[in-house]
Computed example of a mutant assay.
Amino acid sequence: MTASANQSSQVILRTNGVSKSFGKFKALSNVSAEFNRGAITSIIGPNGAGKSTYFNVLSGAFAPSAGRVEFEGRDVTNVPQHQFAHMGIAKSFQITNVFPLLTTRENVRVGLQAFVSRFDMWRPRAKLPGLVEKADELLALVGLWDRRERLAKELAHGEQRALEIGMALAANPRLLLLDEPTAGMSPEETRVMMDLIVKLAKERTVILVEHKMKLVMGISDRILVLHHGELLAQGTPAEVRQNDQVKRVYLGQREH
């Protein structure tokens, strides 16, 4: 294998010159970046930097106005969002999205059933053997096995976020996209989520949008910094921390 081919195989996701406009407003401008397989990459930036827009482009929710998105070497720029899970990409949103009146186990089982039986999500459980066992495996992975019989609405906020990640894992993704996974969490919940993300990254690639600098610097292999819709800097946490432009426009004295 050539050096260039080996380097390419290490890249799971790539954007080339991605831009996104909403009317006359340009939310993203010519963003090119590579995301390495098996790494935790965080996307950071001030409010209005374009983080959420970029996340939505990466996850297929928005088609870019210009540019190209590639997943494992395949052009997925215009692939419908509902096909992403079947390609190996799963996501968890900033706003928790669970079924509050179902138990924790049932929430994950629905996710599994939707993936296994794409066009018949509510097919009787008996016709899809092994779903309860698999659901329990995923609940154990995200630390919720002992809450498996609890209604989702009875879970603490941090537990609901972990449940949503468990539902995303139902598709057995190679790439997991997390949008502000610690939003609204207490310091203790944040630490639990940070440990979970690190554990999940041992078997899959993780890309997250996050604003808590201490968490980002503590768990990321690589960081992308957006500013006014443009890629301001990228590198390891140490490189980003020492970048003069980043310190001037974003980090400064705000890190805590």
Rank of each mutant, 00 (worst) to 15 (best):
E255R: 06
T53P: 08
A85W: 01
L215K: 02
G88S: 08
D179W: 12
E255T: 02
S21T: 14
D244S: 14
L224Q: 01
S186F: 11
G45L: 06
A90S: 15
V198D: 07
S29V: 05
V240R: 03
G23N: 13
S59Y: 05
A85T: 09
S8M: 11
L224M: 12
R191Y: 04
F55Y: 11
A114N: 04
A168W: 01
E159R: 03
E133C: 06
V249C: 09
K51F: 10
T53I: 10
H228S: 13
R241L: 15
Q234K: 07
K51I: 07
K20C: 03
D221K: 04
K212T: 12
S32A: 10
G67L: 06
F35E: 02
R125K: 13
D136E: 13
A171F: 01
L139Y: 06
Q113K: 14
K26D: 08
I219N: 00
Y54T: 03
E70P: 00
P187M: 11
N107Q: 12
S52F: 10
L177V: 01
L178I: 14
G184V: 05
F25D: 07
S65N: 06
L196M: 12
K134L: 05
P100T: 09
L138A: 09
R191M: 08
L169K: 00
V108K: 01
M1S: 15
R191V: 10
D221M: 08
Q7S: 14
V142E: 10
F93S: 02
E180L: 08
H227N: 15
F93W: 10
H256G: 10
R222M: 00
E34T: 11
P237Q: 11
F22P: 02
E34A: 10
R14K: 15
E255N: 09
V108E: 00
V225I: 08
K134F: 00
R118I: 09
G111A: 06
P173I: 03
K127M: 14
E72F: 03
G38F: 04
S8K: 13
V116C: 05
P64W: 07
A33G: 06
G158A: 13
L178F: 02
Q242D: 15
S59G: 08
N36S: 09
A33V: 15
Q10V: 04
M121Y: 12
S8L: 13
D75V: 11
F35Y: 15
G67A: 09
R254H: 09
L177R: 06
F62C: 03
E180A: 09
V98H: 00
M121Q: 08
K202Y: 08
A156E: 07
E159C: 03
G23T: 13
P64S: 12
K199C: 02
I223A: 07
L163M: 11
G50F: 06
R161V: 07
M167I: 15
Q242A: 15
F22Y: 13
D244R: 15
G38H: 05
A114D: 01
L178A: 01
V79N: 01
A49N: 04
N47D: 12
K127H: 11
Q253Y: 01
M193Y: 05
L175D: 04
R118W: 11
G158D: 11
W122I: 07
L200N: 08
G143F: 04
P129G: 09
V18S: 05
G166C: 09
L112D: 00
S186Q: 09
S4D: 14
F84S: 01
G130H: 04
K214F: 06
L163Y: 07
